[in-house]
């Protein structure tokens, strides 16, 4: 049996007439990093609050670590970094962590070592005796991350963990998330920074207007390998009927004037370049790669918003089992 960190079926939340979450279906396996994406107002934070029992669902069902939503026993094994928050400004960083360790029920003889461990992990050693009221946003976020990682929780829920961090800080957080996965935690990562999600996540769900419009592994979602070439002196290349590249795959021209072959077998890219050269083309640049998560995200959200809300999502990107 596969252990599921999170499973929801048709989870719904309505505030009066406003539907914040229409029907959420996601599955997060134990020990994986799961990217939870969507535009502002898609219902991501509502979903996180439902998972933690901070609000009650209007419909549907779900379980976290095999227990009902909001279950106290499950909450003992969850670390959570909220999106918009401030810790008690009059407490020092160490005291905040000590409070959370004690609320989480960590035995008192283990608390100090555990607080030291997470302080070192997020780079707050030396600032641990300072009051959090004087912390920058970035330091607050590091502290929040440290609190979320206390006691190696089975599930870590991070709501925009890097929004206040500089590029160095973001790289640190990526390392921390990978480390958490290695220590056996499942991570639900809610982020707008798609490059970050792409680098970290095993599985991804994209939500829009309160429901999942695409879900699956990154390989499934971005599967098609493509190649982009900047070529001059080969006017015929873009015409599918005459292009020397037609035998490699469907050819198109992107908005920067580059030739795009998608899908393409990555093994044949050198042959493809040789074919362009043989036909008299001058190759200035070759950009192998698959569709970025950003392209997928923008495409899906735009299509979904253009569609009538009653139409089902595109089959090719329908939620994966």
């Amino acid at each position: 049996m596969t252990d599921l960190a999170i499973e929801t079926r048709g989870l719904r939340k309505q505030y009066g007439a406003t539907v914040a979450l229409e029907a959420l279906d996601i599955r997060v396996e134990a020990g994986e990093v799961f990217g939870f994406l969507g535009p502002n107002g898609a219902g991501k934070t509502t979903a996180v609050k439902l998972l933690l029992g901070l609000t009650r669902p209007s419909g549907g069902e779900g379980s976290v670590l095999g227990r009902p939503l909001g279950d106290l026993g499950a909450r003992r094994r969850i670390g959570y970094l909220p999106e918009l928050f401030r810790y008690q400004a009059w407490l020092t960083a160490r005291e905040v962590l000590d409070l959370h360790a004690s609320l989480a029920g960590l035995p008192s003889n283990r608390r100090r070592a555990e607080v030291d461990r997470v302080l070192a992990l997020v780079g707050l050693v030396g600032r641990d005796r300072d009051r959090t009221g004087g912390f920058s946003k970035g330091m607050q976020q590091r502290l929040g991350l440290a609190a979320a990682l206390l006691g190696d929780p089975a599930l870590v829920i991070l709501d925009e963990p890097t929004s206040a961090l500089d590029p160095v800080g973001r790289e640190d957080v990526r390392a921390i998330i990978r480390d958490a996965r290695e220590r056996g935690s499942a991570v639900l990562l809610n982020s707008h920074l798609l490059g970050e999600v792409e680098r970290l996540c095993d599985h991804v769900a994209i939500v829009n207007k309160g429901r999942v419009v695409a879900a699956g592994s990154l390989a499934q979602l971005l599967g098609e390998q493509a190649v982009r070439l900047h070529v001059t002196g080969l006017a015929s290349a873009a015409d599918p009927s005459t292009s020397p590249l037609a035998s490699f795959g469907p050819v198109s021209v992107d908005d920067e004037g580059w030739l795009v072959v998608r899908p393409v077998d990555p093994e044949r890219i050198p042959d493809l370049v040789a074919a362009v050269v043989a036909a008299g083309g001058r190759v200035h640049a070759v950009d192998p790669g698959r569709r970025s998560l950003e392209d997928l995200f923008l495409g899906l959200v735009r299509d979904d918003n253009a569609d009538n809300a009653t139409e089902p999502a595109d089959d090719a990107t329908a939620p994966a089992a």
Binding site: K49, L54, R76, Y80, L84, F85, H100, G105, A147
Partner: peptide
């Protein structure tokens, strides 16, 4: 108002 309570109530605190 500050969201402090959400961080605390996500713990096993009734």
């Amino acid at each position: 108002e500050t969201g402090t309570v959400s961080a605390m109530l996500a713990r096993p605190l009734r």
